[in-house]
Design a protein around this nucleic acid. Structure first.
Length: 299
DNA sequence: GCGTCCAGGTCTACC
DNA sequence: GGTAGACCTGGACGC
């Protein structure tokens, strides 16, 4: 079975898929032969649906495995999750208007960049973000792969889901350290998962909340293992771009692009991006990833 | 093959 | 409020 999701005129499928590293972390899977992105979406209590997304003309074509007809309510639920992941319901008009004003950023408009792919759940985004801290990207991939292969639910064949908070909450700290290879991050992931599983923390409402960004930043920072870098980037996935979320690679890219490789203080970087107001974090990310669009985005 | 060193963010204790 | 050291892993490097 297949169905379609119509997209805004300034949406670019592959620029969104390759907007950052998430598409390389399971259960996401980019199939270069079929030019598709596989996603695994939660679908009720401990049930999951695997879907292949393909770029269409002004739409995303969604292929579901098998020929069984889905109910309209199920299609609506899956479509809603995909719209959220692809950021289809957020307005980027102001962002693109600002990008047009700066010759250095006109490529952003032409490439349809700016929408950052996110996971079906905030929980998956936060866990993966913690797994990016203080390690190489290769180790992040190892941790994500282990979470899915050892704790995920089998959907079909070798396709597995990202584990639920309840599934991680039932693990021992030593299992997370040794089998998932998340080392000292184990107690952080355990505490987060247990608080959510016990109903003491609801982070899924972060995508809808109207509270000021500073307050939301403090809430995100209150999670153990989430410092300024991780919180700034989690906020970007929540549609708030007021924080830069600097790490070694984004600092390095700034030094290279604007200071001829010379190191400068973070406050200098912050001053540079202050001109972009509430979009500053996204403009920083555009500068960090500009070269990706020439090298990494295949389509 | 083995040992050592380093890079990568965050937390905690201490000043 | 600022700083130092610990946390853990993979990779690079020298032997």
């Amino acid at each position: 079975m297949k169905f379609s999701i119509y997209t805004p005129s300034n949406f670019n499928f592959w620029s969104t898929v390759y907007s950052h590293g998430w598409c390389a972390l399971p259960p996401f899977f980019v199939d270069p032969n079929n030019r598709s992105l596989r996603v695994v979406l939660p679908d009720g209590h401990n049930k999951y649906t695997a879907l292949d997304l393909v770029e269409g003309k002004k739409k995303i074509i969604v292929h579901a495995e098998g020929s069984a007809i889905m109910s309209s309510s199920k299609v609506a639920g899956l479509s809603s999750q995909i719209r959220s992941m692809m950021r289809l319901d957020e307005s980027f008009d102001v962002f693109y208007a600002e990008a047009k004003r700066h010759p250095h950023h006109r490529w952003v408009v032409n490439r349809g960049a700016g929408r950052l792919l996110r996971c079906p759940t905030v929980f998956e985004d936060v866990v993966k973000m913690i797994c990016t801290t203080n390690c190489s990207w290769a180790l992040t991939e190892i941790m994500a792969e282990a979470l899915v292969s050892k704790l995920g639910t089998t959907v079909s064949g070798n396709i597995r889901s990202f584990p639920s908070p309840e599934k991680i909450a039932r693990c021992s700290e030593s299992f997370l350290r040794k089998e998932i290879r998340c080392g000292y991050r184990a107690p952080y992931l355990l505490e987060l998962s247990r608080r959510i599983a016990e109903g003491k923390l609801d982070i899924e409402q972060w995508r809808q909340t109207k509270i000021p960004t500073e307050e939301l930043f403090d809430e995100v920072r209150a999670i153990k293992g989430v410092g300024p870098y991780a919180a700034g980037n989690i906020l970007k996935l929540l549609g708030r771009y007021d924080y830069l979320g600097l790490d070694s690679s984004s600092r390095g890219e700034f030094y290279r692009a604007f200071k001829k490789g010379r190191r400068v203080k973070d406050s200098t970087i912050e001053k540079h991006y202050a001109q972009f107001g509430e979009w500053r974090g996204l403009f920083l990310w555009m500068d960090v990833t500009k070269e990706w669009y020439k090298k990494k985005v295949p389509f």
